[in-house]
Design a protein around this nucleic acid. Structure first.
Length: 675
DNA sequence: GCGATCAGCT
DNA sequence: CACAGCTGATCGC
């Protein structure tokens, strides 16, 4: 039971059919923590999305952990942070070992009953799905296998991953456990991140530059993964990314102090796909007078999957997911021709199966154009798998991530409404009530739309104090009028409620020419689409703001000022011991590589200096681990056209993301798109 | 009261 | 345009 293919367990939608275990290494479990997996010798979490965490906080596993002191959960540093942000996973704290990206690391898999032991080397590769998301490459006595988790990698990205290679060629991979979410010709192509970003960027720009009262609601669905969008929009537009995370609530009565209504459009990121021969158009679709859908995908398209898999060319490929409307068998049939046996009897060394250099990233480049251009010697940034390993026969001794300040661990997502002062709650309405299947323009509560639309919301009680704009920039205990003082007192209110670029369209496809590339962005109009969700929300507006005035509201709850004291016992440090890596492993691929070793101890040792870790130091510390991490989030998967966010910037954002603190983004001196 | 499962929703 | 995740009902412990 539990092996791929035996049971196509698909229940409604693209539920993961991967049950946690791989054929080759059945004593470890990945992304599943229930049933058979309760017996695993080691656990792996590819990223912090709930559907990959089934059973992770179940009492049964918790008990197991208490008895089996050698069982650990391995994941990327960012995933560890994100996971421990939720107090419900706090009990994992001392049992999570984060592994740096692109750092082959040996792990001992011990059966505590028999004492039986097996060595395995795991390498985390950036998956481009969400912050911290990784693929796991396992090497051991049963061959090399790759578990992709959820991933989105552009065409050719596998060819640039050094650690998928050995001796200049792709490693001999026995099996790939593959994210097949869009593994169906229907989903042949999905616009690249860059294309999606520039479409969204232009839409947002065209709206928010109209007046300080024109704002955009980025109506995102839950959890992590949109950070790429937020950071890039912030960078390009030089605006504050204000977060209005209030469970399922939206700020209501968003009227500026001087009674000028705010004009809001909603942009809902969602996946759009196109057939093989379909022209990729319509990255933005207008779904109502002031609502849009924007293309955005966390998962590889069919063609991206094909490119990835055919490059890896494993012996076997197992789908982790069965897309809606298809079957396990059909997906396997699609994957089979991309695997080794069906190619030829010869080992397949295709011309492309050669490590590519890192790609230069610049805004105007056409994606993939320079993929195989070896003429530009670009230093490998971030990807530093061998940095620790200058002496081929010496095992690196790397302390695993430590000093993870508890400031990052405060609950941000779990608190319920009762923890919220009622005065604060009064400033929000439940967005759900604004939704209606039958009406077209209901995504935005009327109170958000200024003079727009019919009153389709439960209106605020007229007796209730009208919530004010500045409320949403301040923590509730500190609301003053300052929040508005820098606002221009514009009287320019909405004329058309749609960006001019689109408003002339009369229902026809509207063409927006992109300012910064030869590629153009298309926007189509679309009839009513149901109502929008009421999940995570980010608003953008164009005001120049005093950064001191703004504090984001955390998604999960209002976060009180955090105590600075960090008990010494909470600081952990894992000390690594040297060990003969090669002795137990026959895989030739890993003999040439430097391997970090996870000590086979009952528990990671605890640092006891008890020193307070200053914010600066903590960030600095994070930055030292940053290369690989940001590589995960931005380098491999990032838009070729986009400028890479800076390390410090990313670390700052992630730290804030984890704490729910305000995100203040410095306006860039020069936006690449400004000219 | 908690968890698992499912329907429904977005 | 379909991912990720919530709410609420129901059942069992």
């Amino acid at each position: 039971m539990g092996f791929p293919g035996e049971l196509g367990l698909v229940v409604g939608g693209t539920m993961s059919s991967f049950e946690g275990q791989m054929v080759e290494y059945p004593t470890i479990s990945i992304d599943r923590f229930d049933r058979e997996n309760l017996r695993a010798r080691a656990y792996f979490l590819s990223h912090c999305h709930k559907d990959h965490m089934k059973g992770l906080r179940a009492p049964t596993l918790k008990r197991r952990l208490e008895c089996s002191l050698k069982v650990f959960l391995y994941c990327s540093p960012v995933t560890k942070e994100l996971l421990l942000t939720n107090p419900k996973y706090k009990f994992w704290e001392k049992r999570i070992i984060s592994i740096e990206i692109e750092t082959p690391t040996q792990i001992s898999l011990v059966d505590e009953a028999s004492g039986e032991q097996e060595e395995i080397v795991v390498t985390l590769l950036p998956a481009g799905h969400c912050p911290g998301s990784v693929m796991f490459l396992f090497q051991g006595n049963n061959g090399t296998v790759l578990y992709t988790g959820d991933f989105r990698l552009a065409k050719g990205e596998a060819a640039r991953m050094e650690l998928l290679h050995s001796g200049g060629r792709v490693k001999d991979i026995q099996s790939v456990y593959l994210d097949t979410t869009f593994c169906d010709p229907r989903f042949y192509q999905i616009p690249s991140r860059g294309e999606c970003l520039s479409g969204i960027l232009e839409l947002v720009r065209s709206w928010i530059t109209r007046s300080p009262y024109h704002v955009v609601w980025l109506n995102c669905k839950a959890a992590y993964g949109y950070e790429y969008l937020f950071t890039n929009l912030s960078e390009e537009l030089g605006v504050q990314a204000e977060e209005y995370f209030q469970w399922n609530k939206l700020p209501c009565g968003m009227i500026s102090k001087n009674k000028i209504p705010l004009h809001t459009i909603s942009i809902k990121p969602s996946t759009m796909w196109f057939g093989e021969r379909t022209r990729k158009t319509n990255v933005i679709v207008r779904t109502g007078e002031s609502s849009y859908r924007a293309c955005f995908s966390f998962h590889s398209s069919f063609s991206e999957i094909k490119d990835f898999l055919s490059y890896i060319c494993p012996v076997n490929a197992y789908p982790n997911v069965i897309p809606v409307g298809t079957t396990m068998d059909k997906v396997k049939e699609i994957l089979k021709p991309l695997c080794r046996s069906s190619q030829s009897t010869e080992p397949k060394y295709k011309p492309l199966g050669k490590l590519k250099r890192a790609k230069t990233i610049h805004l105007d480049s056409e994606e993939e154009d320079d993929l195989f251009d070896d003429s530009l010697p670009v230093p490998l940034k971030h990807k530093v798998p061998y940095q620790l390993t200058l002496h081929p026969e010496v095992f690196s001794m790397t302390a695993l991530p430590q000093n993870q300040s508890k400031k990052l661990r405060q609950g941000t997502r779990c608190c319920k409404a009762e923890s919220m002062p009622s005065s604060f709650l009064a400033n929000f309405i439940d967005c759900e009530e604004s939704n209606s299947e039958s009406e077209e323009e209901l995504e935005i509560p009327q109170s958000l739309q200024g003079d727009l639309g019919p009153a389709n919301l439960p209106q605020q009680n007229a007796d209730v104090e009208v919530p004010r704009w500045e409320v949403f920039f301040k923590r509730n205990e500190d609301i003053t009028d300052e929040g508005l003082e820098n606002f221009p007192s514009s009287t320019e209110t909405a004329g058309s409620q749609s960006p001019k670029l689109f408003s002339d369209s009369d229902g026809e496809s509207t063409h927006i020419s992109s300012q910064n590339s030869s590629q153009s962005t298309h926007i189509t109009e679309q009839g009513s689409q149901g109502s929008d969700s009421q999940f995570d929300t980010v608003l953008l507006s164009s005001q120049e703001r005093n950064t001191g005035d703004f504090t984001s509201l955390n998604k999960g709850a209002y976060i009180p000022k955090l105590k600075e004291n960090i008990p010494a016992s909470q600081m952990e440090q894992n000390v690594l011991c040297p060990k003969d890596t090669h002795s137990d492993l026959k895989s030739s691929d890993i003999r040439d590589e430097e391997v970090s070793i996870i000590p086979n101890v009952g528990e990671p040792t605890t640092q006891s200096d008890g020193k307070h870790i200053s914010e600066e130091k903590r960030l600095l510390n994070l930055s030292t681990h940053a290369d690989s991490q940001s590589s995960s989030d931005f380098e491999i998967p990032s838009t070729p056209e986009a400028e890479q966010p800076k390390q410090e910037h990313l670390q700052y954002l992630y730290a804030k993301l984890a704490t729910g603190e305000s995100i203040v983004i410095e306006k860039r001196k020069h936006s690449l798109l400004d000219n």
